[in-house]
Amino acid sequence: MVAAVFGVIRAHNLFVVVMMGGIYSFLMATVMVALDAVDVAMTEAAVGAGMSTVLMLAVLGLVKTREAPLRHSPVIPLIVCLLTGGALIYGTIDLPPFGRADNPQNQHVAPYYLENAKKETGAPNVVTAVLASYRGYDTLGEVTVIFTGGIGVLVLLTAVRRRGEGDATMMRDTIILRVVVKLLLPVILLFALYVQFHGDYGPGGGFQAGVAAAAAIILYGMIFGVMAARAVVPQRVVHTLIPLGVLIFAGTGVAGLLLDANYLDYSPLGSSQKAGQHLGILIVEAGVFVTVASTMLAIFYAFGGRAEDALADDETDKPDDWRRE
């Protein structure tokens, strides 16, 4: 991981930088497994190593791939960074040691969640229970942030269509890739659904499943072209689904209100508290899934679509516009 960071600092070819970033994320995911954070590791592997890398490669199709040499001396930033690091390391002397169960951060609410999550929500995966039920407000907020981020990208990249310069090479003509992708596609989608609905019992949930499902379509789009992916999942559907997921989440909270409970309290939705919580978690996770998957797809369409437009423009060799004076 450390080597990968140095690689990112040293490399000037941006392709190398991005691939190093991907390797780094994957290593980070394995570290997370070692730290018992299986849910998080799954997300990091899918998002960090998968989505971000694809996204950055799509951007590299649009901009220059070599970094200009540094103009300033890197000494001052280096000193500042080393000072910051030194101060932080000095601060670690007072922090509690690694891995003890009696550390203060492991004493507060965590034991309560571990003891009561199964009794109160019926979900053995405590992470899912906390995510969707105990801290439902947090998650609703996060989903809204993702929603906002997706809208931001759409506003920036689709409002005005200008031509970019660059060559995005989509690997459309490689028969091996085409066959492999067609074989993999249903498996990935099935896996996403499994992760979605098994999230109460094993690692997984709406976030991971959403990214996995989006990854399947994105893979298809990378091989067969963004237009083909748009034919499978039209852009309009994606744009409708982004707010729909947030609405499902928020609406579940309102349903609780109407049934004489607090906002985002799912207990009255079922015959017993446990059944209600279980149903609530399932619905909320479905909302998360819808928003995450469609936002990722929308972002991919926005970036990938630009790259293809640029490619198409170059091919048709239209008369130069005002930008090429």
């Binding site: 989505m51 995510l131 993702i146």
Partner: peptide, 27 residues
């Protein structure tokens, strides 16, 4: 401790959304 897992799980997905926004600015 499950609590940090929950916090970071959402942070990762929010992270990719912010990176995507940054990338859109770059483009």
């Amino acid at each position: 401790n499950p609590l940090p897992h929950v916090l970071i799980l959402t942070a990762i997905v929010v992270g990719v959304a912010t990176i995507a926004l940054g990338m859109a600015f770059v483009v």
